[in-house]
Structures are given as C-alpha cells and as structure tokens.
Write a protein that binds this DNA or RNA. Sequence first.
DNA 1: GATTTAATGTAGTGAGCATTACATAAATAT
DNA 2: ATATTTATGTAATGCTCACTACATTAAATC
Lengths: 213, 213
Amino acid sequence: MRIDGVKDFVVNDTKITPQATARRGRPRGFDRQEALAKAQDLFHAKGYDALSVADLTHALGINPPSFYAAFGSKLELYDEVLRRYERTEGLDVDTALAPGTPLSDGVARLLRYAADAYASGSACGCMVIEAARGTADSAAGEKARERMEASRSYIHQRILGLDAGNADLASDYVMMSLAGLSASARNGMPTARLHVMAAIAAEGLSGYLENAA
Amino acid sequence: MRIDGVKDFVVNDTKITPQATARRGRPRGFDRQEALAKAQDLFHAKGYDALSVADLTHALGINPPSFYAAFGSKLELYDEVLRRYERTEGLDVDTALAPGTPLSDGVARLLRYAADAYASGSACGCMVIEAARGTADSAAGEKARERMEASRSYIHQRILGLDAGNADLASDYVMMSLAGLSASARNGMPTARLHVMAAIAAEGLSGYLENAA
DNA sequence: GATTTAATGTAGTGAGCATTACATAAATAT
DNA sequence: ATATTTATGTAATGCTCACTACATTAAATC
C-alpha cells in the first residue's frame, strides 16, 4: 500500500504545507475536499443505500477508478464523510453543556441547537441519527451507530460534570429528543416549529427533575 | 384480471363464510394469513429494502410465482402488511384520547402505550415510523408516509375533541415523541426505561400547556 | 371424461449494483 | 532520455435484485 500515507494525504488534500511537496505520479484531476463535501450532501440527503457509486461518480464528474483510487470504497468514503459531518455540522455540545450550567438549561440549549441544525433543507435531520437506523446487519448502519455511540458517550460525559446523579437519565432523554427532532425535520417540520418542539421537550426534563428533587 | 376480486379474497383467505364457496382452480398450497403475519414480522425487523423477495419466499417456503400470484408484488404486499400492522399492533388511540380526558393525561397515556408497543424484541420500534424515513423518492417510503399521515390525522382529530386550541401543537409533539420513542427502542432501550422517557416527554407538554394558560 | 381455472416448480429474464482489468496519460526521479 | 509512480478512461466483471415464461398439477364446472 502507501508507505508514508499520512503525510501524503495532508500535503495533497489541503495546501497547509507551505512548500508544496509535490507527489510522484500523475496529479489528481479533481479536488478531493470538494468531492468530500459533495458526497456529504448527497449521503445526507439520500442515505447510504439509496446513493449509488454511479450517482456519486456522476455528481463528482469522475469515473469509478478515480473514485476508488481516492476513497478506497463506498463504505470507506461514507465513514470519512460521517466524521467530516461531525466536524462541520455537529452540535456544539461544549457550549451547550458548559461547566456550571444547570442541567435543565444545558439540555434546553442543546435541543435548541439541534432544532437549528436539523432544519429542513435539501438534506435535513441529523445524518448520523437517520443513518443509524439502517438494518442491523448493514455495514453502513454499523458505522453510523459507532458515531452515534461516540456522540452519546461525549454528551453523557459532559452531563456528568453538571449533574452526575441524573447523567444516565438525561443523556438517554437527550438522545431520544434528538431522534424525535431529527425525524420531525425529515418529515418537513419548519425551523420555528422545531424550536417550539425542542422547548417543550426540554421542559419535560426540567419538570421531571424538579419533581424528583 | 379478477372480476369479483373482493369476494374471492374474503372467501379464500379467511374462513368467515360458513358454506366454503370453493374456488375454481388448484387451491393455494399455503395459508395466506400466516404468510402475511410472517411477512409483517420480517418487514418490521429488516425494513423494506433489506428484505428481499428471495428472503420472503424462502421464509414462507414457497416459490416466486406463488408469491406473485398471492401478493401481486413486493410493494403491494408491503402496503397490505402496513395496514395489517396498524390493525394488529397499532396504538389504541381511542382509549388513550377518550372524550373528556384532559389533553395532558391523554398524551401521557398514549406515549405510555407506545413505550409498551415499541419495546425491544426481534422487531422493535414502530414499523410505520421507521419505514417513513426511507429515501424520499422510494415507493415503499411513500407508502409508509401515507400510513403515518393517516395516523397523524387521526390523532389530530381525536385531540381536537379534547382541546381544540392546542390540537396542532399537541399532535405535532406527539408525533415527534413517538418517533423518539421508536428510535430509542430500535437502539435497544429496555421497556422500563422507555416508560420513563415517555413520562418525561409527557411532562413536557403538560408543563408547557400550564405555562401557556 | 373433457374443459376451464388457478397455483405450482423449474429455470430463467434484464437491470442495477459495487468493484476492477487494462491500457494510457501525466507527473517526478534517476 | 528512461524508469517509476500515480491517476485516468473505457469497458467489463460477477452478483443480487424484483420479476416472469412455460409447462405441469390440482381443483371445480360442464
């Protein structure tokens, strides 16, 4: 395979390195980052199964060999796209659940962020959540479920710092609410209504915690 | 095609008619109702796309021609299964939202029913809700979305009789909560926890309505 | 018994899928 | 210049999919 793969990728994909250490063979005829962005939009809008490699190569204006040379396989590209999605479109959990924030307020803020992020467009809802419900034995669903578990775990850890006693309950409820918001967005609910839904859902946890106290 | 299709179906499928008005040709070698029940389980567990006709015929112990003679096509069978699902596994909306029930209580009860119905098993979550998020341009997704809209409309109408002013809001919130519960069930959440989630979600609407009043 | 009707088993159909063989083109390295 | 390395375009690979042609079987009707 590739010996110094990591350095190569960095150099070729992003022009961060000042002295452009040129690669050996024929240069790639398309921008890999642009292609990733387009692939992300397409995967988000159509899902893994419904988006064929032919769709992708056509949209990117390349042929299958170039596709496989650049991304390895459809599944590897998908995994890369999922991680890119987290970076580019992921919720700002750190801000929503900043240390010192009351748990109820933090959850309310996080759900508000989600209402914004999931808002209807050509590709709406959370890409990871929607993909995670693919069939149990699908490789793509497995990738998505990995990313969702990573997010759940991160949120859980953040909540631990706010209210350790209710962390399990609250993170379960947050994940459920995010799934509900994402589904509603997919079903065409407009942003303003999503915000109301997020507020009502947050109110639920708030009231529940008050009653428990 | 078939001239007196309706009567034929009734007679051959269910033995409701006392004098078994026997059909003309060779009798079907399998029980169509049993087959429908099995197909429902399979579609619920795997979804439309992931379940092939070959999977179905193998599970039913029949060959493709028998399958198509009995059900028309994969999509027609799916539509029939979706309607059967509503009858056999659908939530008891009439009881949950019985006339005279305070809206908050009715919604709480409906979500409790859902927590029971969606409980983890080989096929968990709501079959219709999970299927409705198939790709936008998929025929199966369209069928599921039709059924979901029918349910939404029915729930909306029932809520109109309890609290007309909040019917739009409440039915939107119910649909979102059902989607969240269904997703959580699919992700393996046990029944007891689903009940807690349902209670918290219901508390949200309850608190919101109180504040608005 | 002859005819009609419908379901069955065997064996395919064409279409779409992800992926790749192979020769060629374009760059660097020697 | 020549060799090496990588990407490209054309065209195909094997596979799975939903679905069907066709001859046969099993029942009711005449």
